[in-house]
Nucleic acid binder design. Structure first.
Length: 422
RNA sequence: GGAGAGGUGGCUGAGUGGCUGAAAGCGCUCCCCUGCUAAGGGAGUUUACGUGGAAACACGUAACGAGGGUUCGAAUCCCUCCCUCUCCGCCA
């Protein structure tokens, strides 16, 4: 959610931002400003009336105390009329405020000036590439490897739950556990505090990070208890400090959190969902930063660099994309995607997404800090995957396989696995 | 899941219809005093929104778990929900 005062002062910028993100209807910007005018007029009127009515109530109290019942009664007769008027105004204020707020929730975040304007994936900028793709003919896609050894059991996953919920068996289960440990350890070394979070969140949390109202169809719902299964650790971790005022010396706040992630992925099909490419449940280590506004773009760069470093240590070739305006989400102001090279499939797989939300999430969450002038100020939030597991596993199985079919263990994971081959 | 008790400011804790945005204490900030291992004195110390102002700030409104209701007036009375604690049940 944007600051209404910011929209008031930057109407054209907000509208252009929405157009650049591919929104067709920008009239809501004008409408929300109208509603805001209307709302402020109503609030002013209501406050004035309430002020008068409060003064009278006090007067009544005083007279009652002095035992002057008749005089009090006279004023009471007067006030009952004003009371109805206030009630009507309050209802009107509430109505306009709800309208204003729901419009406000539909206005996208404004892209940062450094973000390329464009509407398709072809407009994304290749920000960096690293490593030499090992593209030998004999390399097989990961699903052939896992099938040959029985390392991922999709069929039993279907039997037990449904498509997209596989079992990982033996060496691949062990590999995932090793990766999680490796990622968490690296985050710890970089100053992130490790957090274990709830896997279900309530509606307020889902709204805080922007899954509601924009993307609620992505989440699994537990209706009986009104919970959502988290689509990413971003949701519980960013909401950790919801409705709080942090002190400046706590900042920046940096958390690392490993959780499973659940996504309905309605409408996916074909090669996208083959093997480990796209699942309904997958594990991920997520990094979340809560920072002072003036530092958030530097923090985004270090976040991106951290995720890239993980792929470098795993010696997996990758590229980093700076996402164009139209390929960014509703809530982001700038976003990098990291894509690892899958030599068995001859395609890039997204394994990380590092985003700056500026104050867009923090404003919804009332997440603030006390600045140098002792005033409360909205913080900036960022998050990035470091990293998403199954696709790293997929790329790794394909990149580390040998012609005889054996799969080597990456150097940095040997301490966790204790042998040279899976 | 059943029964009971309770949710007030950074913390402890008063307050059962009006002068309470909230006593008192602790903590914190600033100032004063004092030459001695410390104490004393004074002032300040929630947040959001609105109006005015360049700003400092001033004024107004709202908030005592959340949402509704009663009343001229609610932290205080009524209803619903959420949460915490104690006992019982269940359980890793």
């Amino acid at each position: 959610m944007l600051d209404i005062n910011f929209i008031r002062a930057n109407k054209e910028r907000v509208e252009q931002g929405m157009l650049n993100k591919g929104e067709k209807d920008i009239s809501i910007v004008s409408t929300v400003l109208q509603k805001d005018e209307e709302w402020r007029a109503l609030v002013h009127k209501t406050d004035t009336l309430r002020s008068e009515s409060n003064a009278k109530a006090k007067e009544i109290g005083k007279l009652m105390g002095q035992g002057k019942k008749d005089e009090a009664q006279a004023i009471i007769a007067e006030t009952s009329k004003a009371k109805e008027e206030i009630k009507e105004l309050e209802d009107a204020v509430k109505k306009v405020q709800d309208e204003k707020e729901s419009l406000l929730l539909r206005i996208t975040n404004v892209p940062h000036p450094s973000v390329p304007v464009g509407f398709t994936e072809n407009d994304n900028e290749v920000f960096a590439t690293w490593g030499d793709p090992n593209n030998e003919e004999w390399r097989k896609p990961h699903w052939e490897i896992t099938e040959r050894y029985g390392w991922v059991d999709f069929e039993r996953g279907v039997k037990v739950t449904g498509a997209g919920f596989p079992f990982y068996v033996g060496p691949v289960a062990q590999l995932q556990r090793a990766l999680i440990n490796f990622f968490i350890n690296e985050a710890g070394a970089a100053g992130y505090t490790e957090l274990q979070a709830p896997f279900f969140v309530n509606e307020d949390s889902a709204r805080g990070t922007g899954q509601i109202p924009d993307k609620e169809d992505m989440m699994y719902v537990i209706p009986r208890d009104e919970f959502f299964a988290i689509p990413t650790a971003e949701v519980p971790v960013t909401n950790f400090h919801r409705d709080e005022i942090l002190s400046a010396d706590q900042l920046p706040v940096k958390y690392a959190c490993h959780t499973p992630c659940w996504r309905r992925e309605a409408g996916s099909y074909g090669k996208d969902v083959r093997g480990l490419n796209r699942l309904h449940q997958f594990d991920k280590v997520e990094l979340v930063k809560i920072v002072k506004p003036e530092t958030s773009y530097d923090e985004l760069e270090s976040l991106r660099a951290h995720s890239e470093m993980l792929l470098q240590k795993l010696e997996l070739p990758y590229r980093t994309l700076l996402m164009c305006t139209g390929d960014m989400g509703f809530t982001q102001s700038k976003k990098y995607d990291l894509e690892v090279w899958s030599p068995g499939q001859q395609r890039w797989l997204e394994v990380s997404s590092c985003s700056n939300f500026e104050g867009f999430q923090a404003r919804r969450m009332q997440l603030r800090y006390r600045n140098e002038e002792n005033k409360t100020e909205i913080l900036h939030t960022l998050n990035g995957s470091a990293l998403a597991l199954p696709r790293v596993v997929a790329a790794l199985l394909e990149a580390y396989q040998e012609e005889n079919g054996k799969v080597r263990v990456p150097e940095v994971l040997k301490p966790f696995i204790g042998r040279d081959y899976l």
